[in-house]
Design a binder for these strands. Structure first.
Length: 371
RNA sequence: GGACGGGUGGGUGAGUGGCUAAAACCAGCAGACUGUAAAUCUGCCGCUCCUUGCGGGCUACGGAGGUUCGAAUCCUCCCCCGUCCA
C-alpha cells in the first residue's frame, strides 16, 4: 500500500483529477515534474523546489550512471538522501538519450551502446542494466528502457522501435519482478509507435497486457506538429487502463499543458521551463517575454504583473534584463524560479478547473492569452 | 633631435597587390529551444536603392597625393601613438 493511485474527479473533456501516493509523499495529478537530470534542477535549490510546490522531480538514469555513478548514489543512501530531496522522484531510463545522442549510440535488440558524451568511453545499457541502475538510485517511479525515435519516421522504423520497446518492457517487468520491490518502486512501461495511429494503438494494447502499475506515452514532441502529438497521445491514452497513472513524456509548452490533460494525461515533464529560463525566455500570463530584448532595459514592471512568485514580487524586468545581459548566475536562478512557478501554477489551476468541470473554458482562455 | 614598432569597421584584432564591405572574438540587435551533450545554438550586425538578388550604387582600413587594369596591402609627404637612444 506504499503506492496508491486514485482518480478523484473527471472533467467533461476526459481530464482526470487524481492523486498518487508514494513513499515520498503524495502527488496531486495532473502533475508537472521539473527536470533535474543530474540530480539537480539547474538553478534551484531543493528548498526552492519545495517552496515552489514541486511534489516530484525527474532525474536521469543515464547521466547519473555516468556521473557520479549509481553505486556511489546507493552508498550515499539513495537518490533522495544523496540530493536531499524528501519528496518523490522519477528516473527516466536513458531511452531519450537513444534519441538525443543519436550520433553517439548504436541500438540492437540486446540494448544500446553509448559513447559517453563526457569522455567518449563506451557503455552498454540493456533493459536489465537500466533497471539495475534505477534500483540502485531508488527513485519512486522508474521507467523501462525504450527506443525513442525522431519524427517523422517511417512506419517500418516506428514498428521496429515499438516492437523492441515492447520486448524490452517485458524484460524490464521480469527483471523487476525478480529484483525489484513493489512497495518501494513503481515501474512504468512506455508506449511507442511513432506518428502512426495503428501502431500506437497496437503497441499500447500489447503493453497493457504486461500489466504495469503505470504507463507512459513516449516518443512524442520530437519533431511532429502539436496536433499530431495530441492525436497520438489521445490514441494511446484511450487504450490505457483508467485506474493507472498516465505519463506523457517530455511535454510541453505552457499553452499545450491543458491539451494533454484533456486527453487524460496525469503526469508530464519538460525541460522547457528550466532551459528557456536559462536562455532568457520567460513565460507569462500574456505570452512570452524574451528578457534580453532592448525594450525591457528600462521596464520597471515585474515579469508578469499577475504572477505571485517570489521573483515577480520583488524584481523588475529592467533588473532581470541587466542580470541576463551581464551573464550573472542570479539571472538563471531567478528566471528558473519564475518559469517553474508559472508551470506549477498552471497545473494548480488545471486541477482546480477539473474539480469544477471547467477545463475546456480554462484551456481556451489560457490559449487565447498565451498566443 | 635620432632608431625602431604601430595607426583596420562600436571594441580587441587578423589580413601585407585581385577570391576583401574586409577573418576571428567581444559588444549590439533579433530568434530558436518540448523524457537536458544546452549558462546552448542560429541569423543580422557601413550607408543606401530597388524588380530583395550569391542584385545595383555609394562610402571605408590615420590624412593627402602617387604607382597599377586593380591598393587596407607598394611609393612619397604629412599627422598621431608606443618603446628605446640622445
Amino acid at each position: 500500500m506504499s503506492f496508491h493511485f486514485e482518480v478523484l474527479a473527471t472533467d467533461p473533456t476526459g481530464a482526470r483529477l487524481g492523486r498518487l501516493s508514494t513513499p515520498h509523499g503524495m502527488i496531486e495529478t495532473p502533475a508537472f515534474m521539473p527536470v533535474g537530470t543530474a540530480a539537480t534542477v539547474k538553478g534551484q535549490t531543493q528548498a526552492d523546489l519545495e517552496s515552489l510546490g514541486a511534489q516530484i522531480l525527474l532525474a536521469n538514469t543515464y547521466h547519473l550512471y555516468l556521473r557520479p555513478g549509481h553505486e556511489l548514489v546507493r552508498e550515499m543512501g539513495g537518490l533522495h538522501r544523496f540530493m536531499s530531496w524528501p519528496r518523490a522522484i522519477l528516473t527516466d531510463s536513458g531511452g531519450y538519450q537513444v534519441f538525443s545522442l543519436s550520433d553517439l549510440r548504436k541500438v540492437n535488440d540486446e540494448g544500446v551502446t553509448f559513447r559517453s558524451h563526457l569522455d567518449g568511453s563506451e557503455h552498454f545499457l540493456s533493459p536489465e542494466k537500466a533497471l539495475e541502475i534505477e534500483l540502485a538510485l531508488g527513485a519512486d517511479i522508474i521507467m523501462v528502457l525504450d527506443e525513442c525515435i525522431e519524427a517523422p519516421s517511417s512506419e517500418s522504423r516506428a514498428r521496429d522501435a515499438a516492437a523492441r520497446t515492447l520486448a524490452w518492457a517485458r524484460r524490464s517487468r521480469d527483471y523487476f519482478t525478480q529484483h525489484g520491490d513493489r512497495a518501494r518502486q513503481m515501474l512504468f512501461g512506455i508506449v511507442q509507435g511513432g506518428t502512426h495511429p495503428a501502431l500506437r494503438r497496437e503497441n499500447a494494447d500489447a503493453l497493457v497486457e504486461l500489466d504495469f502499475p503505470g504507463y507512459a506515452i513516449g516518443g512524442l514532441a520530437v519533431g511532429e506538429s502539436h496536433s499530431v502529438t495530441c492525436e497520438m497521445a489521445s490514441i494511446a491514452a484511450a487504450q490505457l487502463p483508467a485506474d493507472r497513472p498516465r505519463y506523457l513524456m517530455g511535454v510541453g509548452k505552457p499553452e499545450q499543458l491543458a491539451d494533454y490533460v484533456a486527453l487524460g494525461v496525469d503526469m508530464m515533464d519538460c525541460v522547457l521551463p528550466t532551459r528557456s529560463a536559462r536562455h532568457g525566455c520567460l513565460y507569462t500570463s500574456a505570452g512570452r517575454v524574451l528578457i534580453k530584448n532592448a525594450q525591457y532595459a528600462n521596464d520597471p514592471r515585474p515579469i508578469d504583473e499577475e504572477c505571485q512568485c517570489a521573483v515577480c514580487r520583488r524584481y523588475s524586468r529592467a533588473y532581470l534584463r541587466h542580470l541576463f545581459s551581464a551573464g550573472e548566475v542570479l539571472a538563471t536562478i531567478l528566471n528558473t524560479h519564475h518559469n517553474l512557478y508559472f508551470y506549477l501554477d498552471i497545473m494548480r489551476k488545471i486541477r482546480e478547473a477539473i474539480r469544477f468541470g471547467k477545463l475546456e473554458s480554462f484551456r481556451s482562455d489560457l490559449q487565447a492569452r498565451l498566443k
